[in-house]
Design a protein around this nucleic acid. Sequence first.
RNA 1: CGGGGCGUGGCGCAGCCCGGUAGCGCGUCUGCUUUGGGAGCAGAAAGUCGGAGGUUCAAAUCCUCUCGCCCCGACCA
Length: 562
Amino acid sequence: MRYSRLFIPTLKEAPSDAEAVSHKLMVRGGFVRQLAAGLYIYLPLGQRVMDKINTIIREEMNAIGAQEVTMPVLHPAEIWQQTGRWETIGDEMFRLKDRGGRDMCLGMTHEEIMTWLAAHDLRSYRDLPQMWYQLQTKLRDEARPKSGVLRTREFVMKDSYSFDRDDEGLDRSYQLHLEAYKIIYARCGLNFHLVQSDTGMMGGSMAHEFMAPSPAGEDVVALCGSCGYAANVELALSVPKAPAVPDWTYEEVATPEKRTIDEVTRFLKLTPDLFIKSIVVMSEAGPVLALVRGDQTLHEKKLARFIGPHRPAQKDEVKSSLGVPVGFIGPMGHKVRMIADVSLKEGLYVAGANKEGYHVKGVRPGEHFKPEYADIHMAEAGDACAECGKPLRTERVIEIGNIFKLGTKYSVALKATFLDEDGSEKPIIMGSYGIGPARVAAAAIEQGHDENGMIWPAAIAPFQVLVIPVNVKDAASMDRAEEIYAALEEKGFEVLLDDRDERAGVKFKDADLIGIPWRVVIGEKGLKEGVVELKERRTGSVEKVPVAEAVDRVVRKLVIEA
RNA sequence: CGGGGCGUGGCGCAGCCCGGUAGCGCGUCUGCUUUGGGAGCAGAAAGUCGGAGGUUCAAAUCCUCUCGCCCCGACCA
């Protein structure tokens, strides 16, 4: 392609409202434009990147025997009502009515529709297993779109669904996807972690996420360098360092106007790990007292696994349910349900005295109060790995894919059953597997850039080579550039020829910004010596090669990378 | 949904506190010069200040309402 004919509106300045590196560079590089909150236009360069990622995904999905289908974006409400998600999902689903007044919605995921299809056309164990996927636009009315293309209201997703006759079959389909995903991300040039994850609103029994390390990520994972344990902190198990057990007897201490852990620790000159933090939440079954050590953070998703949906209590709710003002709650003597973090099983602590202005020293869990124990603290760097005891580290990540074992949740609700060999009717066992191609692109930029712009992995770069004649008015330069361009295209590479009548500086700056892996620079000075320059974007290394050898050298570089 | 910030030529911003001629940089267009890391000079086009209402002789500036966008949190296949 010729640069002069491509629409690549690069910008010198980043948009002021962009925060994430990938967001700034995608806008500056002329890859995307924002139409409204969470709605993006993909310009030619962005489109090329997405096409490449999608091609890799399709190749690997096809390779494991998955078959591509196209699903409606507009769905009738009834099918979502049958699985109950019409009610449970809430505001995140775009809803509308057709002219006949029928409730409809825009597809935010496709379990229901895929299962509907399976229910209609998969009847016998002979039809199984099946794996179907789609690469289509999803719509979600996100509460807070953010970080460029990382969280949008409209986005393309590859999602596939597996249909098996038994759990062993599901294991196989799951494993096939897991391995395919590893290959996809590796081909896209990403660093990533495979971690255990929460099953969330999907339901189901097992789930993993593929996570690309980046400061722009919204998730945090806990990783053990020793045994390989890796999990989203939403469910990561960890053992916080235990404090030395102090030599205390049970006694009240006056702590006037000291409410927060921070205030009380300073007032009593103690470390926060000697405190019990008492947090009141309102669950569907009423108030629950959650207890974590003072240096720990309550993880609400972990807690939700034990008590279901809940929210923090208001100040007046605390007072009315426990009779104690906020800041002086202790776990002793309450009738409400009480969940204590496992790290509180041993030791002596300071806790609220259930009396304004007082705390109690020497509280012993199990003796002075009897809670249910559960892991409800957030895993933190430095905690011991629950598997092997070695220290965990944590990392901020972008979720680039996930895989779920769904089981029969959808097949039962939508009556997707088959007749097994023994003549009995059974629900199909399902799995669901997603990849967000835009997040893959954003993660690639987050992981590959410098102060001058993007550095694309070769496999998903919008072009593989950029040919730059420094001065297009110099006939010799332009002729050589055209020859090299034509020869590389002839060999099947994707080549961008910067034929613009611009100053060298402008071309070089744009070249760095859009991050094409290899650059061939043809200048008058070089040609006098019979050479052109071959520059690698990633390392910045420059090699002078004889004009006649230029094409072969580039080809060799590209082939090595592929 | 709670908290915070911001809407001024295409882009990035100043002006607003203390009402009175709308300004700067980049980009765009024309001409000349320049030509290996976002050129120089000269000239030009382009905004009615997110929108509505109000106060005032006079509103980008003050007041009220409203819409949009961003950030933090809540939420999130």
